[in-house]
Design a protein around this nucleic acid. Structure first.
Lengths: 241, 241
DNA sequence: ATATTAATGTCTCACTTTGTTACAATAATG
DNA sequence: CATTATTGTAACAAAGTGAGACATTAATAT
């Protein structure tokens, strides 16, 4: 049974989430498709009266991916009048057989706060919400046409991710705990959308003093086995001299 | 007469603005003081149902400074439950002699979207709003104690300003149209909170190729007159996806 | 008129960071 | 045990930055 009672939620505020995953080569994001509408959208939702904004976001993502303890980064609030499309919303809600009395408030104008998150592609247990037929990974250059301003939201998320890549050591959540330099480089290349020189990249990242080197990897490939690295926890980072 | 009718405004959403100005040496921001309360706060307000979020912000700042056509940068939405302080709000509204029926909705929990702006210190015509005794410039290191989470909002604004300084050529609005290299350096120093080497700074900024050099300045100072510069107009770059 | 003063514009040199190329090391394969 | 493909790192070139030196010059003092 779908619960979207008007009295539980703050009207006019919503969130949208851009969930990035990495398949080893491409950056992908989670997109859902609403019942019988051919409408694709970012996973989003509403905020309860007695709930922190960030908790609403976490709740929505946990319901759809099973993941908890994800790192979110808020990147923009979208507040233009023109972004709301009551007819589109109405169609979605009718196709999901929600009754008019309970969905009426959802046709209002909403200001939406957008977050992105970076998760380990393989950990996800995808679960469509009540309004959706499916939720799936889409590569950034193979996105379906998205409803409302969601395309703009995605572009802004990617831009922020690129801007933050250096500062926030963003690869952290897109990779397994231990990874090779090559894997990390692939993450950087996927995020930045450009190739990086191997030796320069390696030298730069080692100089940053945020990686911990472990034993060798036995990948079964016919060449020298690369080291495995993991990210140092912030505490264990010692100053470079 | 104060107009804050519940039916005009979206409940639960507000904005706050951190307006930076520069007096040649220090960065300052605008802070208002509510009637008879000794409470200091950032200039903020509410969003009308039929109004873009950014237009609400511009409206509020124009009413208080007389300034139009300011560049705003949205930097964060503050959405925790704990940020709301209904007792504080009640006191402010009572001291301003607003009647309970019309202010009741303002005691709700609000999610606030915060913007900063950079303006020319001298152009401002300060005008307290209906709830306030005064609106004034305060240097960042001489701020009074601020209500609610406004201190945190200021700190985040400053952090974002610092992060964006290089990318967005932020000095643009803190200086008159034409300025000397020294003046620009003072802006950088005030924003970053540290001294910069003159020669390196000059070389770096000229290398960025964003400054246009004009005729010399006749400052009446007993030394070689510096060049005047202005910012070249830039075409915005769209992110690739 | 001319020397003085002090901030500016630019140059140099050392040092650091980044780009590029080269090459030795080595796990799996046959 | 040689081959293959990839890795780790060294070496050198190119570009960028920190620090200092110095000539230039508008106003002022002489």
């Amino acid at each position: 049974m779908i619960e979207l009672k008007r009295e539980d939620y703050i009207p006019n505020i919503s969130y949208d989430s851009v969930i990035f995953g990495f398949n080893g080569t491409q950056l992908k994001i989670l997109i859902l498709e609403y019942h019988n509408t051919n409408l694709f959208a970012l996973p989003g939702g509403f905020v309860k009266y007695n709930e922190n904004l960030i908790d609403a976001v976490k709740r929505g993502v946990k319901e759809r991916t099973g993941l908890d303890n994800i790192y979110f980064e808020q990147f923009h609030a979208f507040g233009s009048l023109s972004r709301s499309e009551p007819q589109t919303m109405k169609r979605i809600l009718e196709e999901a057989n929600i009754d008019k009395a309970s969905y009426d408030w959802m046709l209002n104008r909403f200001i939406s706060v957008a977050y992105y998150a970076l998760i380990n592609y393989d950990d996800v247990n995808l679960e469509p919400d009540a309004l959706s037929d499916s939720i799936n990974w889409y590569a950034l250059d193979e996105l379906p046409s998205l409803m409302m301003d969601h395309r703009e939201i995605v572009e802004r998320a990617l831009q922020t991710l690129r801007d933050n890549l250096e500062k926030k050591l963003v690869g952290m959540n897109l990779l397994p705990e231990k990874f090779t330099m090559k894997q990390l480089q692939k993450v950087y290349e996927a995020v930045l959308g450009e190739n990086i020189r191997r030796t320069t990249f390696q030298r730069r990242l080692l100089a940053m003093n945020v990686l911990e080197r472990h034993e060798k990897l036995f990948q079964g490939k016919a060449h020298k086995a690369p080291y495995l690295y993991s990210f140092k926890t912030r505490k264990s980072i010692k100053p470079n001299i």
